[in-house]
Write a protein that binds this DNA or RNA. Structure first.
Length: 269
DNA sequence: ATGGTGGTCCTACCA
């Protein structure tokens, strides 16, 4: 069977329901992981997303900020959420997705803190918190159970690790999302768990791959000052199962547009 | 060196 997994920073799920429907129509995800849903669980649009075919849903949100959700056509066998660094932020939900053979795939959906503008952890507590968050993710990932078996980690990780993940490696190396402190931590998380970057597996360097373009550009496509902040990683067992990966660039134009484009991976399991 | 846009919810805060 094929399992299609999509991750998208939706930037308010209630505000963008029509665009969400178009994304689903184009990408046909079995599992759709959202970040920045910006809604408490009681007000999550369960009816609207069920009508798109997602009978099984896990929402983990808060008022106005953050929030993640996992929407699935297949049953969610075991689900969970977790808070990081003793904060009430809603940045992590996970679920086991049922397959046809009794070998579920566990999907972790994460939203890493953006970290503010100043890349100095002494001056900027948001950046210090982001670095601590990434350190905590490495500790978590080092636990061998995390990336064992069939595991997928997706989300807005707010780090563009490779030189060709940004429009200008030199200039962005002093800009939050591409600083050496963040890049070394992200690669540390991957190494700690054995995670493999499924998108780069299919589109290796030096191809440029971006998933985010600022709202502030007059013409995002012409300027193309993008960054790859949204990721899909797989455990070693799933590496030979990665069939395809792509970014739905068109969605960056679908009004009202999110500043992030959806990312998709197709697994043959 | 600066300001540029967008979502949430009422005044700034966050991205």
């Amino acid at each position: 069977m094929a399992l299609t997994i999509v991750t998208w920073n939706v930037n308010s799920v209630r505000f963008r329901l029509d665009v969400l429907a178009r994304v689903v129509e184009r990408l046909r995800p079995d599992v759709l992981c959202l970040q920045e849903t910006k809604v408490v669980d009681d007000l999550f649009p369960h009816l609207a997303t069920a009508a798109l075919g997602f009978e099984h849903r896990l929402a983990h949100g808060m008022k106005g900020y953050n929030g993640v959700a996992i929407l699935s056509r297949r049953p969610l066998l075991r689900t969970g959420t977790r808070h990081w660094l003793d904060r009430a932020d809603c940045r992590h939900a996970y679920a086991e997705i049922a397959d046809d053979d009794g070998c579920p795939v566990i999907v972790h959906n994460l939203y890493v803190p953006a970290g503010g503008d100043d890349p100095d952890p002494q001056r900027n507590p948001k950046f210090a918190h982001k670095l601590r968050f990434l350190d905590a993710m490495a500790d978590w990932s080092r636990d061998g159970a995390v990336a064992s078996g069939r595991a997928v980690l997706v989300g807005d990780l707010n780090v563009a690790p490779l030189p060709t993940d940004v429009w200008d490696h030199q200039r962005l190396s002093r800009v939050v999302t591409h600083t050496p402190a963040e890049v070394s931590r992200l690669t540390g998380i991957m190494a700690a768990g054995g995670w493999v970057d499924a998108v780069r597996r299919m589109h290796p360097e030096p191809a440029k791959v971006f998933t985010w373009w600022s709202y502030r550009a007059a013409d995002w496509r012409a300027a193309d000052k993008g960054r790859r902040l949204d990721h899909i990683w797989v455990s070693p067992d799933l590496v030979p199962r990665v069939r395809a990966a792509d970014v739905l660039l068109d969605a960056r134009d679908w009004a009202p547009a999110s500043d992030h484009a959806p990312v998709r991976v197709v697994l043959g399991i």
